[in-house]
Nucleic acid binder design. Structure first.
Lengths: 332, 332
DNA sequence: TTGCTTCATGCAATGGTTTGCACAATATCA
DNA sequence: TGATATTGTGCAAACCATTGCATGAAGCAA
């Protein structure tokens, strides 16, 4: 690989002159500048990023840590974030943690050591752990923006969906449609947080948590979890007539169980998902679901990140919550 | 951030001694070693990766470039690859290209400049372009392993699914089940390659390409493409009675169109997908599909990558093709 | 012509880590 | 005791790009 030294030699100038010519520095004669650029071109020179980072220049790389790249939610967030970062000349690198707190911490460390300019984090670890491992980032001046978290702290930038408001809205809609009792098909991951949100949403609608059950299932495969939870629910003659699923994939599994039991959606049972995955409109019954405003989130997230990186505004913390939209289709 | 210098000072030794103590170098007294490690711990020292890379040590980071992180196929490949890399002490960084050749090249460059130890590439660009941009990798000694490509070159390591054999098998199965004509619901991305494979598969089964049509649709949304292609197919009274879809999501869209037309799967029309996505068994009709052997691919891919990285075996090129498995469910 | 500014370029330090070589101290053997 | 290994530690160079400062040349006004 050609280095700046090689370019300088070929152009017959000093290394520093070559550096300035390539970086559009001041006080360079047009002629020299051209000569250096030509030499760089001929040698296929590309600067050594590590060296550049060492002298304190940014890497123009932003890290993004997510628990599951193929979660429809995160995949779309990644897509939207990347599109915008690219437009601003940044490169997005992704780390996948598979819901492991250890991997999450490792990713945080690696990105930090690797001198990324900023980190988006979908955080699944508890706050005290995050506090500990986010410290080196602060020391190094690397901004952190949370795009998911089980915490509601004032110490971190975050841009999140207001799930509680979304669920509240969804329950209100179900009641309005004449359904009387709502079950919650929860997940195993953010189970504590999600369940709290559901209970709060019930209360907002004047419903009794004792009458509107929460189902959980200990598997990471959402479809299986949904299927099993619904089978369990259906075995209870006193079951709710409407269900909210923590994710669309849970609803897909649930729908299959309803089908197999010979029941009809939405006549016998209503179903609302959460995510608005790409497949949602194409399922056997097009799924009614809560759709998070991912584009807007990505837009705000990137703006926030860039301003932190470029203006070095680490002291001001921004917290933004956005409402999901209820998309009504055939399952309610 | 604490540097090695700080650690050395705190431990009362020279920087080089500190370095050796931390890296398990030879000729270090136990006492000094402990003292240095203690100091490092106390200062929360973590080495500056850029500096380490500068002196020619690897980064222990492997890059992975995929066209779409949320493609079920790539998401699972990423999952499997990462699991194995992690076990060997490597960290996986992902770049998403959204099927853009430009982004693919940019990712290749960025990873190269960033001094990753190796790159997995799901390649959508043409070979001449790849040849050009893979050159710096060769110069730097960064191994490249293709996990998808439209080329069949001897110049690159690759580990791929033998799609042609899979499709051939699927068609044979359809014929055996009594279906007489097979349509192909193609995609817009690798359309040329895929179509060739389909035609070859028809020939292997003694079928005439003129009688077994290929459908295409210019959209990246597979479900929409599948829906539209099937609607078009159904409008033709002389249509095939079985269909092969380029991806499961295409089959999902197609199934919806069949449903809406009042036709039944598999009685009126058979459908085989390609991917075996998580949702496949839970759809209205559990989808018969070709399932790529992702675990085995990841295993072989990582072994190959590691041997290239650690033994610096860049000269020997490995090319591996694996058969997908036909998973028979309810749509055939 | 002198003194000053402006412009182009080069010199050298900087960043943090690794490592070959040199040196010193200790241990081993004849 | 003297010669020779062995072991622990330090010195300094190397990796590569950036940048403040210095140097030299040219331009310009008085």
């Amino acid at each position: 690989m050609a280095t700046l030294k090689d370019v300088a030699k070929k152009a017959g100038v000093n290394i520093s002159t070559a550096s300035r010519a390539l970086n559009g520095g001041l006080n360079i004669s047009q002629e020299t500048c051209d000569r250096v650029k030509q030499a760089a071109e001929a040698l296929q020179y590309s600067p050594n990023l590590s060296a550049r980072i060492m002298v304190g220049k940014g890497s123009r790389i932003i890290g993004c840590i997510v628990p599951e790249v193929d979660s429809n939610y995160f995949a779309r967030i990644i897509f939207e974030i990347e599109k915008r970062l690219q437009a601003k000349g940044y490169f997005l690198m992704i780390a996948n943690t598979q819901f492991s707190g250890e991997k999450e911490v490792a990713a945080l460390n690696t990105f930090c050591q690797y001198n990324v300019d900023g980190i988006f984090l979908a955080c699944t670890i508890h706050q005290d752990i995050l506090d500990k491992f986010a410290q080196p980032l602060k020391d190094k001046g690397i901004p952190l923006v949370l795009i998911e978290a089980r915490l509601h702290s004032n110490d971190y930038n975050y841009i999140m969906v207001d799930d509680e408001a979304g669920i509240t809205h969804a329950i209100a809609y179900l009641l309005e449609r004449g359904y009387s009792r709502v079950g919650f098909l929860s997940d195993y991951i953010l189970v504590d947080l999600r369940n709290d949100q559901f209970v709060a949403a019930l209360r907002h609608n004047g419903l009794d948590p004792a009458e509107n059950p929460i189902y959980t299932h200990k598997t990471m495969r959402f479809e299986t979890a949904g299927y099993e939870m619904m089978k369990l629910a259906l075995s209870d003659p006193n079951r709710p007539n409407a269900f909210l699923a923590g994710y669309d994939d849970i609803a897909i599994g649930a729908m299959r169980a309803i089908d197999e039991a010979g029941l009809r959606v939405p006549e016998d049972i209503a179903l609302i998902g959460n995510d608005n995955i790409r497949e949602a409109p194409f399922l056997h019954k097009a799924l009614t679901t809560l759709s998070p405003p991912l584009e807007r989130m990505a837009e705000l997230g990137v703006d926030l990140m860039i301003s932190c990186v470029e203006k070095n505004e680490l002291s001001i913390i921004h917290r933004i919550q956005l409402m999901p939209e209820l998309i009504i289709r055939e399952t309610t």
